[in-house]
Design a protein around this nucleic acid. Structure first.
Length: 452
DNA sequence: TCTGGGGTCCTAGGACCC
DNA sequence: TCTGGGGTCCTAGGACCC
């Protein structure tokens, strides 16, 4: 917690619906629901007119249709338009301070202490009033709610207090007066499960929470979560505004209009998801070692299966191979409602080489310096240096070996390949490392894993 | 016509190593 | 013969956020 109210939180009001109403005047003043419009869609954003009838974010669109009157617009969403409008707003925020942390497309924190501002309550109030006016002009009428306080959590709570088009500054010294009457759900990190646990011991407000001991709180909700809530209830929050976060995972998933059982369809969906994930990894210049498959069954039960490879991958085909393997090991009877593919354990390098250290160092360029200090880089020879032939083994590939039997490639390096020979998935003794050019090692026809 | 899609962080158990 | 911890990695699941 700071001594001055220098953290600003901006939350654009009913953002997707507001952009639609801006672009389509006939929608202004009418209920608008943006989200999945198919049978299994959910609401992403409901305009305030639609909220008056009970429509809410995350509600099944079918339910919103029952609640809202004829004439309500149900729209699938135009994300490029939302992105453009968001970019305009984020640029305005960066004029205030270099320290801007976008939380999502419609939400951001700004550290005003990193800019040149009067940080008195009157000063930041004037600043926020001016900001809101400039956002409305620059976006063609989209409004936002602003909270300013001495910490992130106070700024966020402030922006929630007067929506839409609100402005709340929590003056230093008044944090606990603002916090304590609010329901515990107002705190970030308190969702339905935590709120229910707290309600069972009659803790409903943040003031109630403040009276719990650290020991009681951590025994109720866990070590890290309990310690975090203990501090937040005391307005003890020194989390910094962070401008750039490195992504930790990349994933894609799809809920099908109807549950899928056809093995060929499922395989094709895995391929398409792996393609999306791999393309995004390659575009961002990252790759990852852990491939995760997510499955939601016909009964909404959800499970994940993952495998960590010895090296990072970004190739859609390799990602798909692993995902197919993982899918083959789950029960698909009854049909699948959703499939997802993800890659985590990201590193900023392209596909690495597990055995690179074991290889003789490759001198691909000679760097020298002349007396002026000017670096001289000799051109790389046109012909690659002689060495072992590169054999294109890839994770998931099926292979056979006369000595070890049938298996599949777990990881591959420039001149070696790790193979998991058939057996229990977790039996480490079944993994063998072979020379990539081992003539005994041959590709095999894939097993018929698509058959249930 | 019940329940999206993209993420983050935490926990807990087992394997494995020292 | 009996009995250790600590630390890290991996896997699976759950809570939470927008």
């Amino acid at each position: 917690m700071r001594r001055e109210p220098s953290i600003l939180h901006l939350d654009l009001d009913a953002f997707f619906a507001a952009v639609e109403q801006r672009d389509k005047p006939s929608l202004r003043g009418r209920p608008v629901v943006v989200g999945g419009t198919g049978g299994r869609g959910v609401v992403a954003t409901a305009s305030y007119e639609a909220r008056a009838f009970g429509a809410r974010s995350a509600m099944p669109t079918a339910e919103a249709r029952r609640l809202c009157p004829p004439g309500t617009a149900f729209l699938g969403g135009r994300f490029a338009a939302y992105r453009r409008t968001s970019d305009v707003v984020m640029a305005l925020l960066r004029e205030l301070s270099p320290l801007v942390e976008p939380v999502s497309i419609d939400e951001a924190y700004v550290d005003l202490a990193a800019g040149d501002h009067d940080l008195s309550v009157a000063g930041v109030t004037a600043l926020a009033t001016d900001l809101k006016a400039r956002i409305a002009v620059a976006t063609g009428g989209v409004t936002g709610s602003v909270g300013i306080g001495t910490s992130k959590s106070l700024a966020k709570i402030g922006s929630e207090l007067r929506k839409p088009d609100g402005l709340t500054v929590v003056p230093p010294g008044q944090e606990l007066d603002v916090l304590h009457p609010l329901p515990v759900r107002s705190l970030g990190g308190v969702g339905p499960a935590t709120a229910e646990r707290l309600a069972q011991i009659s803790v409903k407000t943040i003031g109630d929470l403040h009276r719990l001991s650290l020991v009681d709180l951590t025994s109720l909700v866990g070590q890290a979560h309990g310690a975090g809530l203990y501090r937040l209830a005391r307005a003890d929050d020194d989390r910094p505004v962070i401008t750039d976060r490195e992504a930790k995972s990349v994933s894609a998933e799809e809920t099908f209009a109807r549950d899928l059982t056809d093995p060929a369809r499922l395989a094709a969906e895995v391929d398409a998801l792996a393609q999306r994930v791999g393309s995004r990894l390659q575009r961002s210049g990252t790759s990852g070692r852990t491939v995760t498959l997510k499955v939601r069954r016909y009964d909404f039960s959800t499970l994940t299966r993952s495998q960590t490879l010895p090296h990072a991958v970004d190739d859609p085909r390799q990602i798909a191979e692993i995902a197919h393997r993982l899918l083959a090991a789950v029960d698909r009877s009854g049909g699948l409602r959703l499939l997802g593919v993800g890659v985590s354990g990201l590193s900023p390098y392209a596909q690495g080489d597990l055995f690179a250290e074991a290889l003789a160092p490759v001198e691909d360029a000679v760097v020298d310096e002349d007396p002026t200090g000017e670096p001289v880089v000799e051109p790389v020879p046109a012909d690659p240096a002689p060495g072992p032939a590169v054999v294109a083994w890839y994770p998931g590939q099926d292979v056979v070996h006369p000595e070890h039997g049938a298996g599949w490639v777990w990881g591959s390096g420039l001149n070696r390949v790790t193979v998991r020979f058939e057996g229990p998935r977790t039996a480490p003794g079944r993994v063998r490392t072979l020379a990539a050019d081992d003539p005994d090692l041959q590709p095999a026809d894939p097993p018929d894993w698509t058959t249930p």
